[in-house]
Amino acid sequence: MRTRVPLVITFITGFLIILGFWIPHDPVGDIQSTFLIWYAIINGFTMVLGIVSLVHIHTRKIISHKSGYGYSLILILSMLATLWVGLYSGIKYGDLYKIDAPFMWYYNSIFVPLSATMFSLLAFFIASAAYRAFRARTFEATLLLIAGALVMIGRVPIGDVIWHKFPVIADWIMEIPQMAAKRGILIGIALGMIVTSLRIILGIERSYLK
C-alpha cells in the first residue's frame, strides 16, 4: 500500500499521458488537458499545506518567545491581512485586479514595491559576484568577461554613443554563439529529462517516495 500503490499511480498517469499523445482521440485524446486541470486543483490544496506549515512554524516561535518572534507575528498578521483583502475583493468585486478593488491597492502599494525592490537589490550582489566570476584568470573566464561586458555595454544608450557597433555586437552574441550553446544545453537538459521521466514511470527512480 505504501510503495506499490504510488508506483502504480505514477505508471498509469505517465503512461496515459504518453498514450494520449500517440492516440489523439477519445477516451485518451484529451487526457493531458484533463490531468493538467486536476493538477491545478491539487496545487490549490498544496497551497493550503504551505500556508498551514508557515503558520505552524511561526506560531511555535511566537508561543515559545524565541528570538525574533515579533517578526513572526508580523509575518502572520501580514498573511492574514492579505488573505482577508484578497477574499473580500474576490467575493465582492468578482475580479481581484479590478481597479477600485482593495486587492489592487494592496498589489500596487505592498506586493509590487516589495518584490521589485527585493529583486533590484540583486543588482548590487550580482555586481560583487561578477567581480569574483569575471576575474580573467583562465581562458574561459576571459570569454565570460568579454561576452558579459559586451552584452551589458551594448544594451545601454551610452554604449551606442561610444561606438555605434556595440549594440550590433551585443545582438550578434545573443543571437548566434549564445543561441548555439543554449541549444546544446537545452538538448542536454531535454535528454536528461526524458531519461529521468522514463525511470520514474517505470519505477526505477523512487526517491520521491521517501
Binding site: 498517469t13 505517465g14 503512461f15 493531458q32 491539487i42 538538448i187 529529462m193 520521491y208
Partner: peptide
C-alpha cells in the same frame, strides 16, 4: 499523501517525455 504526490510526479514525467521530445529535442535539432 504519497498517492497524490505519485499522481503529480506521474503527470510531470509523462509530460516531461512528450514535451522533452516535441518541445525541446526535435525543434532544436
Amino acid at each position: 499523501s504519497r498517492w497524490a504526490i505519485a499522481f503529480t510526479i506521474g503527470l510531470g514525467s509523462g509530460i516531461g517525455i512528450v514535451t522533452g521530445v516535441h518541445g525541446f529535442v526535435l525543434p532544436q535539432i
